[in-house]
Amino acid sequence: MFHKSVIGAASLALAAACGLSLITTPAAAKSDYYTTNPQIIRTKKTVVYYKNAARTQKAQTIKADHYAKISKVVTPKGKAPVLKTNTGKYVTANKAFVAKTAGYQNPKRYYQVNYHQIKPYGKVGYTVKRNYEGIKTWKIMRRLGTANGYNKYNQATYNAVKAFQRKHGLKVTGNVNEKTWVKLGFSKSSFKSIDSYVAPLGAHAWNGRSAHIEAMIKQAYKYKGNPYLVGSSSKPSYGTDCSGLVMQALYAGGINPAPISAIHHAYPGNEWNSRNLWASKKFKHVAYRNRQRGDLVFYYQPGTRTIWHVALYLGHNRVIESWPPRIMVQPIKNGQRSDVAGIARVFN
Rank of each mutant, 00 (worst) to 15 (best):
K4V: 15
L12A: 09
A13N: 07
L14A: 06
T24S: 15
A29M: 15
T35D: 09
T36M: 01
T36G: 03
N37H: 05
Q39A: 13
R42A: 11
K45W: 00
Y49E: 02
Y50W: 15
A54P: 08
T56L: 13
Q57E: 13
K69H: 06
I70G: 01
G78R: 12
K79S: 15
A80G: 14
P81N: 14
V82A: 14
L83D: 10
T85S: 12
N86S: 14
G88M: 13
V91C: 14
N94T: 06
A96T: 10
A99K: 15
A99F: 06
A102F: 05
A102I: 04
A102E: 06
Y104R: 13
P107W: 01
K108T: 15
K108D: 09
Y110W: 14
V113K: 04
V113F: 09
Y115F: 13
I118F: 12
Y121C: 10
K123Y: 03
K123R: 06
G125I: 05
Y126Q: 02
Y126R: 12
K129W: 07
G134T: 12
G134V: 05
T137E: 01
W138S: 03
K139G: 08
I140M: 07
A147W: 04
N148F: 12
G149P: 00
Y150I: 06
N151H: 01
Y153A: 04
T157G: 00
A160N: 10
F164K: 03
F164W: 02
Q165Y: 01
Q165C: 00
G169I: 04
G169K: 10
L170V: 00
T173H: 00
T173P: 03
G174R: 08
K179V: 06
K192C: 03
K192N: 11
V198K: 00
A199V: 10
P200W: 09
P200I: 11
L201H: 12
A205S: 15
W206Y: 13
R209T: 08
H212S: 00
I213L: 05
E214S: 04
K218P: 02
A220L: 07
A220E: 11
Y221R: 15
Y221E: 06
N226P: 00
P236K: 01
P236E: 06
P236V: 00
S237N: 07
D241E: 05
C242T: 12
C242S: 15
L245G: 01
V246L: 07
G253P: 05
I255F: 08
N256S: 14
N256I: 02
P257T: 13
P257A: 13
P257I: 15
P259C: 06
I260Y: 10
I260L: 15
S261T: 04
S261F: 01
S261Q: 00
A262Y: 02
H265P: 00
H265E: 02
A266D: 03
N270F: 02
L277C: 07
A279V: 13
F283L: 05
A287G: 15
R289E: 12
R293P: 07
G294C: 04
G294E: 02
L296W: 01
F298E: 02
F298S: 03
Y299P: 02
R305S: 06
N317A: 11
R318V: 06
V319T: 14
E321K: 10
E321F: 10
S322H: 09
P324N: 11
P325M: 09
V329Y: 07
P331H: 10
G335S: 14
S338V: 10
A341M: 02
G342P: 02
